[in-house]
Design a protein around this nucleic acid. Structure first.
Lengths: 183, 183
DNA sequence: ACCTGAACACCGTTCAAGT
DNA sequence: ACCTGAACACCGTTCAAGT
């Protein structure tokens, strides 16, 4: 049986973590989180043994939503529009915390991370949308899911460090349409 | 007159820094650099008051070369090919140290950094190539230099954390040509 | 069953003391 | 004119001691 003070601490940590990571990004001080949650440092580590474990809990819902959205869009929209829409939603969602696009791409290559499965699920969602769009002849057939996934994360990466480039749909459109003139 | 031990220390620090940053990227421990250079920690800080100051010295030549290359390519090649070539060279050059694309984009918004002028020069070089390519009708006229510069840095960013995506020319081609099918 | 904070091994940065 | 390393204020992570 989990003690009531334990569940209360867990909630406090998560609430504070959301605020602190929202302010300082994924590299925020975990000590600071423990302090502001008025909880011993060991308590934070007991509930979340690593930064990625905490991040996994904070982003789980959002990631699951994005994974599900891929299939919803694929069912409702035309293949090209579905991919465009998902890329935009993903670029905004993955930018929830500064440093998250970085974390996602890094975690994809780190099987030991508790965040790994969620990232793989996201990449697989991109893969399904991509295959459909390619079958419909809307996306170049040589594009791989790894490339697509890297590029859409790059959109989030760019947006978070160039204030004048924060409109994700614009960057998504540039990448989908290319930089060349089609006159 | 600068003392001979001072110039020797400076060289030692730079040699070691090249190795350490090559191994651990731009976030490498400066303490580690001082230790391996067999130099007091204060000596490192005397020669390079900040991480960016050290980085500026380490990358100056490379950045100047890339800035100059923009004009060489513009003079020799057709406008579209010049831009493609420069983007590829830039993506490889900016990836000299892990974390450098990140640093470049961040520094562009930080006027107080000793690395700032070099980054502005690079962005201006991109601007010149872009304008020429747009006048020649090869690149979409609504693309801004900030967008182009962010995207080419993103190529380096992607390449350094996705081992299977390390061929910069492929990523440059995807961004220039777009993801859509042109069948 | 869980909480706590001291302890350990790191960091970047500054600066008084030395040569 | 320059070098040195202790000192300060941080950090992530672990773990013996407590309730």
């Amino acid at each position: 049986m989990t003690r009531s003070d334990a569940v209360r601490n867990r909630e406090r940590i998560l609430d504070v973590a959301r605020a602190v990571l929202g302010e300082h990004g994924t590299q925020a001080s975990l000590r600071d989180v423990a302090r502001r949650a008025e909880v011993g440092l060991g308590t934070l580590y007991r509930h979340f043994p690593s930064r990625d474990a905490l991040l996994e809990t904070l982003t789980r819902r959002r990631f699951e939503h994005l994974t599900a959205r891929a299939d919803v869009l694929a069912a409702r929209a035309e293949a090209g529009a579905a991919l465009t829409g998902w890329m935009t939603e993903f670029a905004y969602g993955a930018g929830a915390y500064r440093g998250l696009p970085n974390e996602i791409l890094a975690t994809l290559a780190d099987e030991s991370s508790p965040l790994h499965p969620a990232c793989v699920a996201l990449r697989n969602a991109a893969q399904r949308l991509l295959t459909t769009a390619q079958r419909a002849g809307r996306i170049r057939p040589d594009l791989t899911a790894a490339e697509l996934f890297a590029l859409v994360n790059a959109v989030g990466w760019i947006a978070e460090r160039a204030p004048e480039l924060d409109r994700r749909e614009r960057l998504v459109e540039l990448i989908l349409g290319g930089l060349r003139s089609h006159a």
